[in-house]
Design a protein around this nucleic acid. Structure first.
Length: 858
RNA sequence: GCGAGAGUGGCGGAACUGGUAGACGCGCUGGAUUUAGGAUCCAGUGGGAGAUCCCGUAGGGGUUCGAGUCCCCUCUCUCGCACCA
């Protein structure tokens, strides 16, 4: 009987589907386990990254089922997004058609992988039955002031007539129109007030022990809570006051000039009628024309221009010049900074460039600073000087008192500032959730009444050939009636950022068909939070942060009771492969390279770095080819065996072959000896064993222990698989030995073989179901309980002790387990090799680590 | 520039709390089987010297009886970024 993966995999997939074994049903009597992998964007085909992600999840889901948990393991589609629009333009089709075709194709592929999803809960975010509830949530947020509109600056391409994301800007130009410079345009956009929840999101980082530290660190840094002060600088010759935010109010006595962001609303007022007006306006215009990528790149020079006006340093009462500078960000702090060139490197460079005044206000403990001679800013701690009443105090210790001093003078106050900005969700795109807002000349901004939801995205229109959304050109969509005054009105034609859909889809999986609201309170509170979330590290910040924000908002709106969506998080590494590049034809697919040469022109191919697999770099492997060749089990196994999930996986075709070979070995192990194995029952531990059999019995139980621990506590599937490989090797050794095998021997073998099959079943579910059946069982492995190990089986009579002299390994000895520290020490010192290395030298110290090692220090 | 990670044989990786560095697999070498190849099985496989040692976890320093693991510095690579005042 030969191992035929294609045939048996399809057979078992059909069996699982028919028996509904993956259907999740709410059952209060059982402990729930909600396992979720990040849902895919329906791009057309699954890629290796998906396969890896979903295999990891499937192993855990199957493992938890076998451990008796009531498992929810759903799958769906993050179906809105720009690639659908681009593909539709390219193929002259419709985004919806493209998306739904892709969903069908990818669903077939996922099913072929044997993933244990409850497909009855499948959802697609482009379905009006999904996004209607998102629109409702948006309206609730609008009502509570969490959704609001404000002006913002965006990258704009005149030809596309659309906003560009930073990644769509290349060398300051539009990616579609490299001849056209991108401009900065002021635009009205919808925002969600994530800043209102910044403090809570930050505090709850402490309550997520199941998240990787690095992700929490990145999130904390992203939120960037900083304590500082607002300081008010009155303008000379006017009543205006310029406010700055600083975390370094200790340096306020050293503030010798003021910088405004080019977008700052005071700029126009400041320069009005002055001779500098023209120059400043020119500078502002030039800066604003730059796209945000170029403007903030480190190679861009820090530039500024004097406005011709001054303001007063509120503590020294000196007049200091006001400049406009390109490095000051409008949307951080107040859009203006006090510059302290002596103690901030950026300010220092800027001051040197423009010949501005410097004043030292902090001195290091061991030297004096001189404004004339210093070559860089002094940014470390020290003692305050030139700082009025604060002279002689340590600068950090004085932070609070200086803030209080400013407050007492009415010139400032303590404050907390966040780095995180509100979430801009307006997109000038077609393929997204319409924002349910109506604009009326009489009534202003009017929310769409709840009973009019959903605002359906019209499907019967054509994409614009140059890109950009067709919605503003579609009167049938935007022409509407004001819900308040019943007059003529216009719909919002922007759609929402697709991150909005992915911020609550995990809630909706718990009650996908529910039609009385976004969430069925009973079901959502049974399943949520997600016990284990698995997905790519690239989502460490945005998606995970937005989901945490939404969860808290929905809790406050009473839609559910949880505060955090994901109890445990596993961030998997990327799948990488080297690139192949032809000097003539750019990146090449693996099949376009033959013998190191480009098949198009014969030029030598340059093998590049090992980087994340991506279509643009063409360093991709199509999982479908591997499935067709080796079957799903081999692909699943290789993805897990190649490296631990949180590390990047470097793709190597040869490794796949190894996994296939191992599955064949397991197959042969069972079928070759099936008659003898099935004649006995599995060993139950009652007969006394010795020698090889005793050792195999122990190995079986060691393996159960190791695999359980690796899957449950560490997600180290690679070492779990290695452990099973070792067990298989040992069974083969026993079978190959010349010793006569009686029934007891075969029963020990049977126990080992059955353990192998059961332990491997979450990883390679198809072959193991087949082998389980061949072994004479008539129940599916899905109904078998996860095995537990027998403590007695692990016992040994001898223990290996490592003997060291001065920390170097010199010998290894076996001692009875009954030996205590004393006896081990005596045995070690008596050892001939150890004696040899001690020689004539006096023994200074002997360190004995119980059951492990002896180190003799001489 | 800032932030976060990583660096172990020819390769992927193992070593979980400081205690035998290189488990397991790939590749390679030799052998068995075979007309041959493939498949399978057995043996070997960090480097050097050679029968008992020396050197080895990017490089340098430190802590320790003992460091791949902890601390400091340097280098290289990857990822993220919004010059974070």
């Amino acid at each position: 009987m030969k191992y035929n993966p294609q045939e048996l995999e399809i057979k078992w997939q059909a069996y699982w589907e028919k028996s509904c074994l993956f259907k999740a049903i709410e059952d209060l009597s059982k402990e729930k386990y909600y396992l979720l992998e990040m849902f895919p964007y329906p791009s057309g085909k699954i890629h290796i990254g998906h396969v890896r992600n979903y295999t990891i999840g499937d192993v855990v889901a199957r493992f938890k089922r076998m451990c008796g948990k009531n498992v929810l393991h759903p799958m769906g589609w993050d179906a809105f997004g720009m690639p659908a629009e681009n593909a539709a333009i390219e193929n002259n089709s419709h985004p919806a058609q493209w998306t739904y075709d892709n969903i069908e194709a990818m669903k077939t592929q996922l099913k072929r992988m044997g993933f244990s999803y409850d497909w009855e809960r499948e959802l697609a975010t482009c379905d009006p039955e999904y996004y209607r509830w998102e629109q409702l949530i948006f309206l609730e947020m609008y009502q509570k002031g969490l959704a609001y509109k404000k002006k913002t600056f965006v990258n704009w391409c005149d030809k596309c007539q659309t906003v560009l994301a930073n990644e769509q800007v290349e060398d300051g130009c539009c990616w579609r129109h490299p001849e056209l410079e991108v401009t900065i345009k002021e635009m009205d956009s919808w925002f969600l007030k994530i800043t209102e929840y910044a403090d809570e999101i930050l505090d709850y980082c402490e309550k997520l022990p199941g998240w990787p530290d690095r992700v929490l660190t990145m999130q904390r840094n992203w939120i960037g809570k900083s304590y500082g002060a607002i300081i008010r600088f009155p303008m000379v010759g006017s009543d205006e006051v310029i406010e700055v935010f600083t975390t370094r109010q200790d340096t306020v006595f050293g503030a010798t000039f003021m910088c405004l962001a080019p977008e700052h609303p005071l700029v126009n007022q400041v320069i009005k009628g002055l001779p500098q007006e023209g120059e400043v306006l020119g500078f502002v215009e030039r800066t604003l024309r730059m796209d945000s990528v170029t403007r903030t790149a480190d190679f861009t020079a820090k530039e500024g221009v004097f406005t011709g006006r001054y303001c007063l340093n509120p503590v020294t009462e000196e007049e200091i010049p006001i400049l406009v500078a390109n490095f000051v960000l409008f949307d951080y702090g107040t859009g203006a900074i006090m510059a302290v060139p002596t103690h901030d490197q950026r300010d220092f460079e800027f001051a040197k460039k423009y010949g501005l005044q410097l004043r030292v206000v902090i001195t290091p403990p061991d030297e004096d600073l001189n404004e004339e001679t210093m070559s860089e800013a002094y940014v470390d701690e020290g003692v305050l000087v030139n700082s009025g009443p604060f002279n002689g105090q340590r600068n950090l210790a004085a932070l609070d008192s200086i803030a209080e001093y400013l407050e007492s003078l009415g010139k400032g106050h303590k404050t907390v500032n966040f780095r995180i900005r509100d979430w801009g969700i307006s997109r000038q795109r077609y393929w997204g959730t319409p924002i349910p807002i109506i604009y009326c000349d009489k009534c202003g901004t009017v929310p769409v009444p709840e009973e009019d939801l959903p605002v359906v995205l019209p499907l019967d229109l054509h994409m614009r050939p140059n890109g950009g959304s067709p919605l503003p050109f579609e009167p049938a969509f935007f022409e509407t009636i004001c819900p308040k005054c019943k007059g003529e009105a216009r719909r919002e034609t922007d759609t929402m950022d697709t991150f909005v859909e992915s911020s609550w889809y995990f809630d909706r999986y718990t009650c996908p068909g529910y039609d009385k609201g976004p969430l069925d309170p009973e079901r959502v509170d049974y399943w949520m939070p997600v016990d284990q979330y698995i997905g790519g590290i690239e989502h460490a910040i945005l998606h995970l942060l937005y989901s945490r924000f939404f969860t808290k908002v929905l809790r406050d709106f009473g839609h559910h009771k949880v505060s955090e969506p994901f109890t445990n998080l596993l961030t998997q590494g990327m799948v990488c492969k080297e690139t192949e590049e032809c000097p003539e034809h750019g990146f090449l697919y693996p099949y376009e390279v033959k013998d190191g040469k480009c098949i198009l022109c014969g030029a030598g191919v340059i093998t590049g770095n090992i980087v994340k697999m991506s279509k643009s770099k063409k360093n991709v492997v199509d999982p479908q080819e591997l499935i067709d060749r080796y079957g799903a089990d081999t692909v699943r196994m290789f993805c897990l065996f190649a490296s631990p999930p949180d590390k990047d996986l470097e793709w190597n075709d040869q490794g796949v072959e190894g996994s296939y070979r191992f599955l064949n070995r397991v197959w042969r192990l069972v079928v070759t000896h099936i008659d003898k194995i099935t004649r006995v029952t599995a060993y139950d531990g009652r007969e006394t064993l010795s020698g090889q059999l005793r050792s195999l019995y122990r190995k079986t139980h060691e393996t159960i222990k190791k695999v359980t621990d690796d899957i449950e506590n560490r997600f180290h599937f690679n070492t779990a698989i290695s452990a099973v490989m070792e067990l298989v090797n040992e069974v083969n050794q026993v079978l190959n030995s010349k010793e006569q095998k009686d029934d007891i021997a075969w029963s020990v073998v049977r126990e080992a073989v059955e353990a192998t099959v059961v332990l491997l079943s979450p990883v390679v579910p198809h072959i193991t179901e087949e082998l389980w059946q061949i072994l004479g069982h008539d129940n599916s492995l899905l109904k078998v309980s996860w095995p537990s190990y027998n403590e007695n089986a692990l016992q040994t009579e001898k223990r290996l002790i490592v003997l060291q002299v001065n920390g170097k390994v010199r010998n290894r000895i076996e001692v009875p387990v009954s030996y205590g520290t004393k006896e081990i020490e005596e045995e070690a010192l008596a050892d001939a090799k150890i004696q040899h290395f001690i020689g004539e030298k006096p023994v200074k110290k002997v360190i004995v680590v119980q059951n492990k090692l002896v180190n003799v220090v001489v």
